[in-house]
């Protein structure tokens, strides 16, 4: 999904490759890119499931406005992944309601 070369923008700026985890599984991303971009590059589209109906949600506005893309990041729920930069070792988890695990009442 990454655009390695672009007719107008050329090649992306060099960024250090970092490892992070998605639901415990280790995957690769680029340091400093939004977590949502790293996830999409790894084929992850579903960021969370809604509290009442359990419906999937993903990136919607990509500029930190709509909060559809929030996930549990480093243990903290409701983090807007489209504007939160990725770092080495960032732990990203699918959010269920406001918690990291299905059925858990999160705050």
């Amino acid at each position: 999904m990454r655009i390695e070369n672009h007719p107008i923008l050329g090649e992306p700026e060099d960024a250090r490759e970092v490892f992070f985890t998605f639901d415990g599984k280790q995957i690769k991303g680029r340091e400093g890119e939004p977590i949502a971009a790293a996830l999409r590059a790894n084929g992850v589209l579903t960021h969370r499931y809604t509290k009442k109906l359990g419906l999937p949600r993903g990136v919607f506005c990509a500029i930190g406005r709509c909060t559809d893309c929030v996930m549990v990041v480093n243990g903290r729920p409701n983090v807007r992944t489209c504007v939160t930069p990725l770092a080495e070792g960032t732990a990203v988890e699918t959010q269920y309601g406001a918690a990291a695990r299905r059925g858990e009442a999160g705050k």
């Binding site: 999904m1 990454r2 655009i3 923008l9 890119e33 971009a37 999409r40 990509a62």
Partner: peptide, 8 residues
């Protein structure tokens, strides 16, 4: 996504 983050 595509022009800033460079992901399709």
């Amino acid at each position: 996504m595509m022009n800033i983050n460079r992901v399709r």
